[in-house]
Design a protein around this nucleic acid. Structure first.
Lengths: 226, 226
DNA sequence: GCAAAAGTGTTCCTTTTACACCCATGC
DNA sequence: GCATGGGTGTAAAAGGAACACTTTTGC
């Protein structure tokens, strides 16, 4: 029996959050066959001398020009026939970033690269639809036991921005007062003396995250039911 | 640049539960280098024409002689140097079975195979210690949102057996009365008219799972905090 | 009658939810 | 003065934790 010829790839589901636009996902237009010209998740083959994590970072850089620090492993997809040419097992990663910090462009390995609102994604190549779906589900679950925000909001933000962020990711309304009560109990926010108006209505206080407490909490994993 | 030469393997962390003995894990003694003669998780290279799931099943069969139906993907380990010979990326699976139903023996591909109590495992080859640790953590977490029991207890069982099962997996004491109240609320048990004594003490009623309700609940994922 | 396990209920406390009114600003 | 968003508190309900006594059996 000959040695199996299986390739290993990585794919990245990078979600971008923007206060104005909500939740998006980063996609590339494929430059080569198969599925040439179609949209897909950024990703590609792992090299023999790089870790899986390094491979995702590299592919993201090569295809979209961005560098994302924190990606988490999502799931490994290895069904036969998921790539029409060869047997390819792909390890999918996902992450959530502040969209405004990432100016994506089609780097060398992609014909195009851009953010798509999660409500409005095109058909995807391979089984990437399935991967995206798994990532969305996982993202929501994850928020139940980890704070999110520091990486997604500006340094100073209004409480309503944070509120909006959670509503966006959960995809449903959350009572403003209860949310505030709960979030403040985590004791990871600092209220600033400044106030800011967004043009109409009463100006709101600005907040910032207490980095130390924030990461301490994140590390040990809080239980946070919204 | 030449094509990367990376192999894909699978490994299985099979936990066995036994009312008398508690929680064990299935290990094999390696028949070939590297780590020849050392204990390891069952597993091996994936073939080109089989799915990852099929590969785990096959390796389990070849090394330990057992067939496990329900394994879930745990995590993919792909660090450089985790196998001293080649670059090997391994997809780890885990599952929980009724130990008494699985008579393991060293099948063709292992020098030995047996259950080890989770409190008393030997040193393991490769990074299998790390994999085992990840599986243990995941198993506990999993019980919070899925019922367990049907697959692990006899058809008819005393409530104390179920209680004991949960205590074993969680590794701590759980109040008997509160546990009973909560579990009965799930409405997946049927109380039988039979009573059975285990030699001393008041005989207890026997219960069985209502299969339909059990799997319905399991499928949709309950939220079950012990 | 004593040791061992099974059966059962209540109280307290914490957490969650629902909900309404006033305040500061721009226009 | 009115529309808009920001700020705050309370009451009711649900859920979780702690806890003790009685019953049935074997010996």
């Amino acid at each position: 029996m000959s040695l199996p010829n299986i390739r290993v790839s990585v794919d990245a589901v990078v979600f971008g959050y923007d206060s104005g636009e909500g939740l998006s996902v980063l996609l590339i237009k494929r430059k080569v066959a198969p599925y040439k010209g179609e949209w897909a998740l950024p990703g590609g083959l792992v090299r023999e001398d790089e870790s899986l994590e390094a491979a995702v970072q590299r592919e993201l850089e090569e295809e979209t020009g961005i560098a994302v620090n924190y990606l988490e492993q999502l799931y490994t997809f290895g069904d036969l026939g998921r790539d029409p040419r060869n047997r390819v097992v792909t390890v999918a990663y996902y992450g959530l970033v502040r969209q405004s910090e990432f100016d994506v462009y089609a780097a060398t390995d992609a014909a195009d690269a851009k953010w798509f609102h999660t409500d409005d994604t095109p058909e995807l190549a391979f089984d990437h639809q399935q991967i995206l779906h798994a990532a969305t589900t996982r993202l929501r679950g994850k928020l139940s036991y980890e704070p999110v925000g520091f990486e997604l909001l500006d340094k100073k933000f209004r409480f309503s921005d944070l509120h909006q962020l959670y509503q966006t990711i959960y995809g449903r309304d959350i009572d403003r007062r209860n949310f505030k009560k709960k979030f403040l109990q985590l004791d990871i926010l600092q209220e600033l003396p400044e106030k800011v108006s967004e043009g109409r209505g009463r100006p709101g206080a600005l907040f910032k995250f207490d980095q130390k407490k924030y990461f301490a909490l994140k590390k040990k994993g809080m239980l946070f039911q919204i």
